[in-house]
Nucleic acid binder design. Structure first.
Length: 320
DNA sequence: AAACAGGAAGCCT
DNA sequence: AGGCTTCCTGTTT
């Protein structure tokens, strides 16, 4: 399984597999320049909820990751959880990432002192590490290789759909139709913007990240990923678990209510169904059908409804 | 209205 | 044959 975080807290400033100043950073910076702009929100996606798309959200979602959520910093000291992890047998609303993300102030991070104790480089390294892990996850979820240069046109479309979905960009798949990975990589930022005026900048920056990540780390690009995921189709329950393992990326759509018991809640049924549809190349996928598939698991003893049945809440029969 | 429950049939590997 | 996907009828929240 995914070799978990290699102890982020142990990481020395420069020990990352990547030189700190690769394209990866420029990619991130481009995203900064790109989305954070004041005016760029013409498309207004259906949920007018929190317009936290853009870099601040991007970074914050990673800062979110550096917080106790995944236990990464758990050993660091008693700084963190003052009020988290209550009894919480009930579906407590543990706030999912966003809420005030657009505030953009870093003291949103619980235990704000943490940032001062770590050099900027360390934080960057951690972000870079997490980006790599995210790419790995996305590969698994999408069933594509990490190297964009290898993508078929349909892989490109998958990546586009997925990225648009994650960063709430307007759909632009048509403008990139018939493009293979090679051609996609050759497009300049201007050409991205031409094809997608609103999302092009982010897409281009994100592709940069993928490009630099895959060239700098062949190890899992070829060997591990191939053996672990490229072959057989993923099962729905595996897919759901993958999403649940990445709360900073997918917590808006699906999250644990009680991870120990394997109880989870689908927060946005339409979006989860859409992600599943992307993965399976089933554009007509919806929650009605996805939930039918989940119900097939009842008989098999893989997923069930929890004892106190609630809408959109399910439970893995065998957690962990 | 949306989620839930399952039967039935079809599709794909 | 297994694991969905699609469609459907009926019930519950």
């Amino acid at each position: 399984m995914g070799s978990a975080s290699p102890g982020l807290s142990d990481m020395a400033p420069g020990c990352l597999l990547l030189p700190p100043d690769t394209l990866l950073r420029t990619g991130l910076e481009k995203m900064a320049a790109g989305v954070v702009g004041p005016e760029k929100r013409g498309w207004s996606p259906s949920p007018p909820a929190t317009p936290e798309q853009g870099l601040s959200a991007f970074y914050l979602s990673y800062f979110d990751m550096l917080c106790p959520e995944d236990g990464s910093w758990g050993a660091k000291g008693p700084l963190l959880n003052t009020a988290r992890e209550e009894p919480a047998d009930e579906p407590e609303q543990c706030p999912v990432i966003d809420s005030q993300a657009s505030a953009g102030s870093l003291d949103v991070v619980p235990g704000g002192l943490a940032l001062e104790e770590h050099s900027l480089e360390q934080v960057q390294s951690m972000v870079v590490g997490e980006v790599l892990k995210d790419i790995e996850t996305a590969c698994k979820l999408l069933n594509i290789t990490a190297d964009p240069g290898d993508w078929s046109p349909s892989n490109v479309q998958k990546w586009l759909l997925w990225t648009e979905h994650q960063y709430r960009l307007p759909p632009a798949g048509k403008a990139f139709q018939e493009l293979g990975g090679k051609e996609l990589c050759d497009l300049s930022e201007e050409q991205f913007l031409q094809r997608s005026p609103l999302g092009g900048e982010v897409l281009h920056a994100h592709l940069d990240i993928w490009k630099s990540a895959s060239t700098s780390e062949e190890s899992w690009t070829d060997s591990e990923v191939d053996s672990s995921c490229s072959g057989q189709p993923i099962h729905l329950w595996q897919f759901l678990k993958e999403l649940l393992l990445k709360p900073h990326s997918y917590g808006r759509f699906i999250r644990w209510l009680n991870q120990e018991k394997g109880i989870f809640k689908i927060e946005d049924s339409a979006q989860v169904a859409r992600l599943w549809g992307i993965r399976k190349n089933r554009p007509a996928m919806n929650y009605d059908k996805l939930s039918r598939s989940i119900r097939q698991y009842y008989k098999k003893g893989i997923i069930r409804k929890p004892d106190i049945s609630q809408r959109l809440v399910y439970q893995f029969v065998h957690p962990i």
